[in-house]
């Protein structure tokens, strides 16, 4: 009898261990340890390499099942409109799959706030600078005619008339305001006209006006992301998006004019008007 029981027990134990091994073999790949990825966006967004890196990173995060939430750490005065917008749209696509939380460090101005607005929830610090919702651009200059250089159309060398440039600036302004009001919705207490003033708000003011949702550091943002994603015992992974210019690089009026003349276009960028 004893021998029989010992045999049964040994057999039971053996198959339990097989079950454990099988369970681990299945569980680990099927239920990976969840991750929260923090992405740092710091400095002016003026390089196509930034956008390419951001889009690539966000796409991979969207496909990676182990990544359950994303936290954007934003410290940026903004950048080129056509460099910021694709990242905004990709963030919205990511939000359709998993929670995205934004945390503002010192500043989320203009294009920096454009990206923050794409998040489910925005944190900032009490003295963060948030806002500067607006756009600027240079107007086309008079065409320099030359005998031996011909263009095929009136606006080939200038891109359009001054009037057209002003119309387009107004359209881009509407798009920016719409991008913010669409995502912030009823949380905003500012009117479109007030938003269009382009003011920068302290974190505490931004909270009052609904530009952000809560005051808090990145650690709280990570906990919030985990709560939204309904995960625990997660891993936090840090990533940085390629950024050639440091955060403290601010543009003066002269530098902006030089930037616009070397790379004409529209800019969601805060700069010091000195």
């Amino acid at each position: 009898m004893k021998r029989f029981l010992r045999r049964v027990f040994t057999s039971f134990l053996f198959f339990m261990l097989v079950g454990v091994a099988l369970g681990i073999a299945v569980a680990v790949p099927v239920i990976p340890r969840p991750k929260i990825v923090t992405i740092s966006i710091s400095g002016p967004m003026l390089d196509q390499a930034f956008t390419d890196d951001a889009l690539d990173t966000l796409r991979k995060l969207g496909k990676d099942n182990s990544v359950r939430a994303v936290v954007l750490q934003i410290d940026s005065p903004g950048g080129g409109a056509s460099l910021v917008e694709p990242v905004y749209l990709e963030l919205l696509r990511l939000r359709q799959k998993k929670p995205v939380i934004a945390v503002v460090g010192s500043m989320a101005a203009s294009g920096g706030y454009y990206l923050a607005a794409a998040a489910d929830y925005i944190y900032a610090q009490p003295t963060s600078q948030v806002g500067s919702i607006g756009v600027f651009s240079g107007l086309p200059q008079a065409e320099q005619l030359a005998e031996d250089l011909l263009t095929s159309g009136l606006f080939k060398a200038t891109g359009g008339s001054k009037r057209k440039a002003i119309e387009e600036l107004e359209m881009v302004r509407q798009e920016f305001v719409s991008a913010v009001t669409l995502q912030r919705g009823g949380r905003l207490t500012l009117s479109d006209q007030q938003i269009s003033l382009g003011a920068l708000y302290l974190g505490t003011d931004a909270l009052r006006y609904g530009l952000i949702d809560e005051i808090g550091p990145v650690t709280v943002a990570i906990e919030r992301a985990a709560e939204m994603a309904r995960i625990r015992n997660y891993e936090v992974v840090k990533k940085t998006i390629f950024q050639p210019l440091p955060f403290f690089f601010f543009f003066s009026v002269e530098q902006m004019k030089a930037q616009i003349s070397s790379a004409p276009g529209y800019y969601y960028l805060y700069f010091e008007s000195k």
């Binding site: 039971f12 198959f15 339990m16 097989v18 079950g19 454990v20 099988l22 369970g23 681990i24 299945v26 569980a27 680990v28 099927v30 239920i31 340890r33 969840p34 359950r68 939000r95 359709q96 799959k97 998993k98 929670p99 939204m228 994603a229 309904r230 995960i231 625990r232 015992n233 997660y234």
Partner: peptide
């Protein structure tokens, strides 16, 4: 026995890491 133990491992791991499912 094998399946129950395996399922328990899988379920245990799921509960260890997840409180529920996220609905975006």
């Amino acid at each position: 026995v094998v399946l129950v133990v395996a399922a328990a491992i899988v379920a245990g791991r799921a509960l260890f890491f997840h409180e529920g499912s996220y609905q975006p």
